[in-house]
Design a protein around this nucleic acid. Structure first.
Lengths: 125, 125
DNA sequence: CAGAATCCTATACGATACTG
DNA sequence: CAGTATCGTATAGGATTCTG
């Protein structure tokens, strides 16, 4: 199965089955904060606080939940340094890095087209 | 702004601002049924009923809501033939087709990796 | 600093019934 | 056939407080 493959080679008739496990993974990735958290980690390892500031508006609860899901999925690794005060770093696994390769263009596309699509100006830093 | 561009060239400091309009677009695309509906339309125009069957498990309410959002966003066009019984076709706009170019690889990636990530077998047709 | 635990609410979503 | 309207619920998500 290659990435260039047509979808109906995989799903004959072009039907996406309801009980396909990939739905779960898709739900994780497309969860409210999923894309932003993963892409935020693309450039480098980030600490909890950095990540929280990088993804503006995310609550602590959602950051924790999103990270745990991705950790369980094998997309993100958590490394806690045994120091006081605590120092915890999050980074992408190779699998996560591979996924972000697909997510960054998507994020960039929304940036390029949001203004046109919504008919109002972009808020740029 | 090109697709290959690094994100911190756009968001210096690697911070994703909370009030950026692209968040809205991202929410539409990553809505529960967004990716599946858009990718289902990649190959050809589909009628309401075909679309409903293609995306297994979607309710009529959510199909309607998802399609309306995408229509307003300029990603999908609705064409109603003035016949009885009604015959309505949905297809991608050029903008929508461009977006699906980015979404199909994402969907394929989840298909390839879901089994490994979740530790259980894929349900294939 | 990096969370966990609680509580609370909006709304996303589904099921059902109805219609031109 | 292609929807809309209504209702009900689950749960995603936020705000706040607490802690090692």
């Amino acid at each position: 199965m290659s990435v260039g493959m047509a979808l109906d080679e995989i799903f004959p008739g072009g039907t996406f089955p309801a009980n396909c496990p990939s739905r779960v993974v898709l739900d994780h990735v497309t969860s409210k904060w999923g894309v932003l958290v993963l892409v935020a980690l693309e450039r480098r390892t980030l600490r909890w606080g950095e990540l929280r500031r990088a993804v503006e508006g995310i609550s602590e609860k959602m950051l924790a939940q999103t990270l745990k899901t991705f950790e369980a999925d094998g997309l993100v690794v958590r490394e806690a340094l045994p120091v006081i005060p605590p120092h915890v770093e999050y980074s992408l696994t190779p699998l996560g890095a591979e996924l972000v390769t697909l997510l960054r263009p998507l994020l960039l596309w929304t940036l390029e087209n949001a203004e046109t699509m919504l008919g109002r100006p972009l808020n740029r830093p």
